[in-house]
Amino acid sequence: MQTEIIIAGFGGQGVLFAGQLLAYTALDNDLHVTWFPSYGPEMRGGTAHCTVIVSDEEIGSPIVRNPRAAVVMNLPSLDKYEPLVREGGVLVVNSSLVDRNPDRKDLSAIMIPANEVGEEIGDKRLANLVMVGALLQRLPVLTVEAVGQSLRKHIPEHRRNLLEANIEALKRGHALAAGEAVSA
């Protein structure tokens, strides 16, 4: 069983880090994983995305045309990846920066005001992990608890002060996605 996830947004929104965190968690849980970034000459402000593939067997191609899930942090990413998600797949949209609903009806789509949720916890830069929490509610390829443990394990010493806020962001995203699923 192989699961492909694309995380996309502006450079600086933490999409590469969010993907790396999923990859570390997969490693810690003895799964095969590849993390493949978009890489270019731009730094902040350009577009960025990464493809994370998690599998219980050896992974061939590190890129895919039709991922099982897309996490989109801004409108250009929604426009680009909504049509590509595999039928019946998962689409997590950052409604803080996206002013339209997804068009497709065959996806498990969810709007998460990730920037606002991040700000409530203390920093809108937590939006990426709010989104990851929501993703894992819809696509339980890894658990939020496992991601939290891996973050605790791999976070560098000089960032340890941010650990609890990030774990809170994961939990809030997960809870928001669960709540919407109940009301829908």
Binding site: L27, V33, T34, F36, Y39, P62, I63
Partner: peptide, 10 residues
């Protein structure tokens, strides 16, 4: 190739 340089894997 460039993807081998940029990819992360266990």
């Amino acid at each position: 190739d460039g993807s081998m340089g940029q990819i992360m894997e266990p």
